[in-house]
């Protein structure tokens, strides 16, 4: 299989702000765009100041922060706030979030890949109905169904378990993931299927040897998308879990308000620590992350 050659256009097409499509030169303004440049500078200030406050506050002691206010540079840098957060329940919340994120992503990908494969390849009107179901599902806001989900989760006796977060979160990541994957899989050329068929490949083999390898751009986008929605989800954990054992990061942060109270450096240190994992991912996999985020917005 010569996947390499076929993959390039595939990639470019499915990555919105990706390097420009072959054949087109990058868009270039003839002159410096001053209004936009000034706008960019103003926006830079608007973005940077809160982020500066976020980081600078965490490096001070609680008393220093109260005395000097949020804009002050710390007299001496102290990592006590971080230590305090890390010695508390933060690692447990992080672990819970990791479990939720990993399970959600795995569940979404498993389900989305199989259903998309069927939508694209099954010759049945039913599979088109399935596609329409997911398209309609795009329009359901998760807040609107939180009450019945609470009901369903309690009926299943899953209240206050991690599964209570995983299942609905995964369900709400499915439509976008299916949309992305169907789009990707439709571009796999018929000839490739035929050559597989000549080998006598059954559908499982076709899936693993052709469809999945050819859809990996879409799979990674859908994966990052569902991982991000799971990582940042708040409403489901808020309503469906309570105890410390099942608390995920977002809910943990919310609870830190009650716990750390006016210890703003510690509270903000927890905020910073909650961003670090995604930030690290951003450094290593910028493109995939951006694609996934575009999916989140598409929700």
């Amino acid at each position: 299989m010569s996947t390499e050659t076929d993959l390039r256009p595939e990639l470019a097409r499915d990555t919105p702000p990706a390097p420009p499509v072959r054949g087109r030169r990058p868009f270039r303004l003839p002159k410096a765009n001053y209004p936009a440049g000034i706008g960019a500078f103003v926006w830079l200030v608007i973005v940077i100041v809160p982020l500066y406050i976020l980081v600078a506050s965490t490096l001070q002691s609680r008393q220093e922060y109260l005395d000097n206010g949020p804009l002050s540079l710390p007299d001496s840098i102290s990592f006590d706030s971080y230590r305090q957060v890390l010695e508390g329940d933060f690692p447990r919340y992080l672990l819970n979030t990791l479990i939720v994120t990993a399970s959600c992503t795995a569940l979404v990908l498993t389900l989305a890949v199989t259903v998309s494969y069927s939508i694209v390849r099954t010759r049945s009107r039913l599979s088109q109905r399935a596609f329409q179901l997911f398209l309609l599902g795009l329009a359901i806001p998760s807040q609107a169904v939180i009450i019945p989900i609470y009901l369903i989760i309690t009926e299943l006796s899953l209240y206050d378990t991690l599964l209570a977060i995983i299942l609905p979160t995964a369900a709400f990541s499915l439509p976008v993931s299916v949309l992305i994957l169907v789009g990707t899989m439709r571009d796999i050329s018929e000839e490739l299927y035929e050559s597989m068929a000549l080998d006598g490949a059954r559908s499982v083999r076709v899936l693993f040897q052709l469809v999945i390898p050819m859809s990996r751009a879409g799979i990674s986008t859908a994966g990052v998308f569902s991982a991000l929605s799971a990582w940042n989800g708040f409403l489901f954990p808020l309503i469906l879990t309570q105890s410390r054992e099942t608390r995920v990061l977002t809910l943990g942060l919310y609870d830190f308000v009650g716990e750390f109270r006016v210890d703003i450096p510690a509270l903000l240190a927890a905020v910073v620590l909650s961003i670090v994992p995604i930030f690290t991912a951003y450094l290593f996999a910028r493109r995939q992350l951006i694609n996934g985020l575009m999916g989140v917005g598409g929700k």
């Binding site: 199989t114 259903v115 099954t122 399935a130 997911f134 309609l136 369903i152 439509p175 076709v206």
Partner: peptide, 22 residues
Amino acid sequence: AGRPGIAWALPAVLFFFLFAAA
């Protein structure tokens, strides 16, 4: 060869139905 049956769509549809459509 190589065409999946409609059963491939079932798990996702059922799952989505239970937690989002229903």
